[in-house]
Amino acid sequence: MAERKVIVESSVGLHARPAATFVQTAAKAPIDITVGKPGRPPVSAKSILSILALDVRNGEVIVIHADGDGADQVLDELAAIVSVP
Score class of each variant (00 low, 15 high):
residue 37 K to I: 01
residue 76 D to C: 04
residue 22 F to E: 07
residue 35 V to Y: 04
residue 39 G to S: 14
residue 7 I to Y: 02
residue 39 G to Y: 06
residue 8 V to R: 06
residue 56 V to R: 00
residue 1 M to T: 12
residue 22 F to C: 02
residue 2 A to M: 15
residue 52 L to S: 03
residue 11 S to Y: 06
residue 30 P to W: 11
residue 11 S to W: 09
residue 75 L to I: 12
residue 55 D to T: 05
residue 16 A to M: 04
residue 51 I to P: 01
residue 71 A to L: 10
residue 18 P to M: 02
residue 64 I to F: 06
residue 70 G to W: 14
residue 18 P to F: 01
residue 79 A to I: 05
residue 43 V to Q: 01
residue 29 A to S: 06
residue 71 A to Y: 10
residue 69 D to G: 11
residue 54 L to C: 01
residue 68 G to I: 09
residue 28 K to Q: 15
residue 34 T to P: 07
residue 3 E to W: 11
residue 44 S to G: 10
residue 57 R to E: 10
residue 17 R to I: 14
residue 6 V to W: 09
residue 34 T to N: 10
residue 5 K to A: 07
residue 18 P to S: 11
residue 82 V to S: 03
residue 76 D to W: 03
residue 66 A to M: 06
residue 27 A to V: 12
residue 85 P to N: 12
residue 60 E to C: 00
residue 37 K to Y: 08
residue 19 A to I: 00
residue 75 L to R: 05
residue 20 A to V: 14
residue 35 V to N: 02
residue 2 A to H: 10
residue 47 S to W: 00
residue 5 K to N: 08
residue 78 L to N: 08
residue 23 V to D: 08
residue 53 A to E: 10
residue 62 I to Q: 00
residue 2 A to K: 04
residue 64 I to Q: 01
residue 72 D to N: 15
residue 13 G to L: 05
residue 85 P to Q: 08
residue 13 G to F: 00
residue 46 K to H: 12
residue 70 G to T: 09
residue 47 S to L: 00
residue 84 V to I: 15
residue 30 P to G: 09
residue 85 P to I: 06
residue 7 I to R: 08
residue 61 V to S: 07
residue 80 A to P: 09
residue 26 A to R: 04
residue 1 M to N: 05
residue 79 A to S: 10
residue 5 K to G: 02
residue 79 A to G: 14
residue 24 Q to H: 08
residue 50 S to A: 12
residue 38 P to Q: 07
residue 61 V to Q: 15
residue 11 S to L: 15
residue 72 D to P: 11
residue 48 I to Y: 05
residue 84 V to S: 09
residue 29 A to Q: 04
residue 79 A to F: 10
residue 7 I to A: 04
residue 51 I to L: 03
residue 71 A to R: 03
residue 50 S to G: 12
residue 83 S to K: 10
residue 12 V to E: 07
residue 21 T to G: 03
residue 10 S to G: 04
residue 21 T to K: 13
residue 10 S to W: 05
residue 26 A to V: 06
residue 18 P to E: 05
residue 83 S to D: 08
residue 75 L to D: 13
residue 31 I to Q: 02
residue 26 A to H: 07
residue 40 R to K: 13
residue 74 V to M: 13
residue 70 G to Q: 11
residue 59 G to W: 12
residue 43 V to W: 03
residue 84 V to E: 15
residue 2 A to L: 06
residue 23 V to K: 03
residue 30 P to E: 14
residue 1 M to A: 15
residue 33 I to K: 06
residue 66 A to V: 10
residue 68 G to W: 15
residue 11 S to H: 14
residue 49 L to V: 12
residue 21 T to W: 11
residue 54 L to V: 04
residue 33 I to S: 07
residue 30 P to N: 12
residue 26 A to G: 08
residue 77 E to Y: 11
residue 68 G to K: 15
